[in-house]
């Protein structure tokens, strides 16, 4: 067990995958056990490809992926014991009901626990009697979650698990995920563009844009350093450090800064008046980072 603790839950080293007109990486990423890492980015940023590479569904062109020290490769399935994956498509027998699909999984998956499957099914309020092709999007996601977690994997890979779900189902799914990761043993890597999920689950955020890692940061660190500041200053050509957005109407300014402390100190030195500072939600910050992706990445490096 102690040996397991020393290993990274997941590690990507120089991982690269090319499609026509798109290149993911090279990506270097480490995920420690007990961490929830959100992959944030617009559509086409490379989130799903990253997760598919980690799940061994896609073989990278270059670089490697490891899960708890085991190499991820389709031909070496040992790593799969540690991985639970929920994607948009999960390959279920569409004409069979949820229960029958779970029975099939139970016979196929080493380490499968019927008790855990029942517990999760009950906790998620999932009805198993309907054929999969008659299930709503939310119930399909729930079924995929049960199938992904009943063999007690230590790494959960979730590709947009809450996309397209109504707020009630989304809250239920997030509750269950929260309960699972609470023990600190599990690592979760999930992709999302539902930014409100970030506040709920993620410890750390990785921003992807055009296949490149723009920024990796802690959620708290992020919310501590970003601020919206309004002030009055006669100087029209003011250049403030850390500012990513600046609006000005005559002497009234409103800026968004990623280095709040430095910006405020500068404003103090410039003699700005009526300075008002407000916190930003993680969602708002994420939008700014993705809007200003390249700029932020350059500035950070």
């Amino acid at each position: 067990m102690s040996e397991h603790r020393r290993e990274a839950a997941a590690r990507l080293s120089g991982l690269t995958k090319q499609w026509p007109g798109f290149q993911l990486g090279p990506l270097d990423l480490t995920l420690e056990p007990g961490t929830v890492l959100a992959l944030v980015g617009p559509n086409g940023a490379g989130k799903t490809t990253t997760l598919n590479c980690m799940a061994g569904l896609i073989v990278p062109d270059d670089g490697s992926a490891e899960v708890f020290g085991k190499p991820v490769h389709p031909a070496r399935p040992e790593y799969r014991r540690e991985v639970g994956y929920v994607g948009e498509e999960n390959g279920f027998f569409q004409g069979w009901n949820g229960g029958r699909n779970l029975d099939y999984m139970a016979r196929m998956m080493p380490g499968w626990s019927d008790d855990r499957a029942s517990l999760l099914t009950k906790r998620l309020g999932l009805a198993l009697g309907k054929p999969v092709n008659k299930l709503s999007r939310g119930n399909k996601t729930k079924l995929a979650l049960v199938a992904a977690m009943a063999h007690r994997p230590r790494l959960l890979l979730l590709d947009e698990p809450t996309a397209g779900l109504d707020p009630v189902v989304r809250a239920e799914v997030l509750d269950v995920l929260w309960e699972i990761i609470e023990d600190g043993e599990h690592a979760v890597l999930y992709s999302t563009h539902v930014l409100s999920d970030i506040n709920r689950l993620a410890d750390e955020l990785v921003f992807l844009r055009d296949g490149q890692l723009v920024l990796r940061t802690g959620r708290d660190e992020l919310s501590e350093s970003w601020r919206r500041v309004s002030f009055r200053l006669q100087n029209e050509d003011v250049e403030l450090s850390g500012v990513v957005e600046h609006r000005q109407v005559r002497a009234e300014h409103q800026v968004i800064t990623r280095e709040a402390e430095a910006t405020l100190q500068q404003l103090n030195e410039l003699g700005a008046e009526a300075v008002e500072v407000s916190r930003m939600s993680v969602d708002e910050i994420a939008v700014q980072i993705l809007k200003e992706g390249h700029h932020v990445a350059r500035a950070k490096s």
Binding site: P74, A75, P77, N90, G91, F93, M108, M109, P110, A147
Partner: peptide
Amino acid sequence: ERRARLLMAGPLT
């Protein structure tokens, strides 16, 4: 039905 995805969750090579 993307069956490969389901089977790749298990121990099959």
